[in-house]
Nucleic acid binder design. Sequence first.
DNA 1: ATACGAATTCTTTTT
DNA 2: GAATTCGTAT
Length: 757
Amino acid sequence: MNPTENMNSTRYHTLNQAQKEAVFHRDGPALIIAGPGSGKTRVITERIANLIREDNIRPWNILAITFTNKAAKEMQNRVNEILGDESRGLAIGTFHAMCARILRQFGEPIGIASDFVIYDTDDTESLVKSIMKELNTPDRFKPRQIRNRISTLKTMERTQDSAYRLGSDSYLDDLSINIKNIYDARLRRANAVDFDDLLNLTHTLLTEFEHSASFILDRFEHVLVDEFQDTNLVQYEIARALAQKSRNLVVVGDDDQSIYSWRAADIENFHRLIADFPEAKTINLDQNYRSTGHILEAAQIIINKNSGRTEKNLWTDNSQGAPVQLLTSSTADEEAWFVANEIRKHQNSPNVKENGFGVLYRTNAQSRAIEDALISNGIPYRLVGGTRFYDRKEIKDIVAYLRLIQNEHDIVAFQRVVNTPARGIGNKTLSMILQTATDTGTSPVAIAVKLVSEDAIPGIPSVTSRAKKAIQLFTSVYEHLASMRDTNNVPQLIDAVVTKTGFRAYLNTLDKDQPDRSESRWENIEEFKNVAAQYNELEEETSLHLFLEQVALVSDVDQPENNEESVNVTLTTLHSAKGLEFPVVFLVGMEEGLLPHQRSFDDEQMMEEERRLCYVGITRAREQLYLTQSLTRYLYGRSTSGSTSRYLKDLQNAGIETSETPSAQSVTSTRSYNSSYTRKKYNLGNGLRESQIKTENSHHNDIEPFKAGDKVRHGRFGIGTVINIKQDGSDWEIQVAFESQGVRKLYQSFAQLSLQN
DNA sequence: ATACGAATTCTTTTT
DNA sequence: GAATTCGTAT
């Protein structure tokens, strides 16, 4: 027996039967259904290592696609741990990153230059906005809405028949298509692609330009896709194309953890896979190594209520553990203080200390109350999600300068920086420049340069001498920076942008009554320089566009963690919690309207996705799970009252063993909980808030807000007649027949109905 | 052209 | 309630 085999036998004997099957499965496609905590990552990494080590597959012939850059990095690290240097050349990355790489190298036949830039959601929204302005679109259409529709159109057009319709509003459809056409043309001219293009263009390249793409199509002997339930149709087809030759497509996923259908992820891909690869072997990883019996049981009660799932039989050898704890508080602050206090109590138990606490919520807005409570209690925490570092205004400004230096056709970047800091170039001058650029097919920068040159140019409107001076301020900065481009590295370029534009002074004027804020903006810029410097050291060939690509594709979740050891509390949305686990999990805001979110109420499919979100949240917990709700909460600056989430009720009805925390019971009857947790807060200056909640709360419950027959108005649905009204806990469930939208059930606390005469 | 205050919209989730 | 947009005055 050679040493390798020896090592491997010990290495593999801790795998269970199903895991071994997945690791050792060889020729042909496979579908691995991996329940939460079933050792999925280990299976994938062992499989890759095994392919390289035992089957002598060369690393660069293996492609592993993950959902986030963070997951990619983790996978890479874990393969490295097993193989060391032998893993060099392995292709691991997200769909978007992989597509960007392919397009840079092979995009030329489909008209994509190798130095294209990537527009993120923000950039595309500004582009849409300016197109809408040019077209004089009625204001009832919001750029955000149109942008989303364009994105949906772009995901659909590739794959469905060309006669697609988005909804019932055909005017809106036509408008969206119209704007989309202009939008696409502008992107191409700006040498830019958006997230959808990255996928679509790669798909086109792989399926319609096979000859040009043959290098890539022939390259991969094994293709692995992680988080398969989150892929959309185009992504699936890209994976299929890449695996067409070898047929070694192995996907790992769990339909119960599909939480991205709003981003066009499509569970149908499971069926497509089986149709396209009928020989695919299905492997079920159903042993859970993560959670206690109680937690797993709770998770199953929740998920079993969804229909159309693939049948599963999750089980665990772990002990039953502590019962799930429920807490009802009267305000969101109180809920937050409860969390903070429990964290303090458990903070020093050994296992928890190391691996920490997860506080999970449905919406980013909920983090604030938790943060306040943690700060007041001196508990350090890490916040994932929210605004991406690169999305901060000051960073985006600098990035826009860099982008414009790299590519003078980048209109969005031009619009952003031309008058930042303020130079006296107003709306009129700006739109004239943009219009002329569009008409003449040149870049806005070139127009600006011509405008300040001595003589009048035919075809270009003249400008006042004042405007000319303003433009000159811009062009001199631009020309200086552009001249540095080829001889300086990214950190040097950033420095130049900052000094040439007088950025520091600009920051001070930006928020002049809040020196703290401009200081923190400045720190962000320093941090940005550090990132650039690190990048500069890491990459041998450090071109500006590669750096910009990283800025566009890296999400907040992927950001370097602040590695202070004392930080063991993580605050995150349920979406970003995927793939994480904690000994102790708090799932907060278990209220109707939040979880499930109100926006999903009308749609059965969306409601099932909410349930899956809840399931994902519960299954993050290893030992202890807290589910908390608050009877009132601030929403849009207004105190609103909510009712117990149906998921909590499901658990209670199923009779699972739970324990209500003692303080929770006293909440409704006495004020003792209130005083111990909230008074500190009160002293911090939120007294007004507290009293507002109480008054609002007390009359919400008792007085029937409407009666049957009342005419009411709803913000979205318009005017209707109340058919029926009944009390549901502290809330009122109102049935309304709307004139245009039919009969709907609404909750008083969320619907914001007003009486109409 | 800008600065300041008023009005308005917004919050689901993110590669 | 905050952030963005709008309107008016300088």
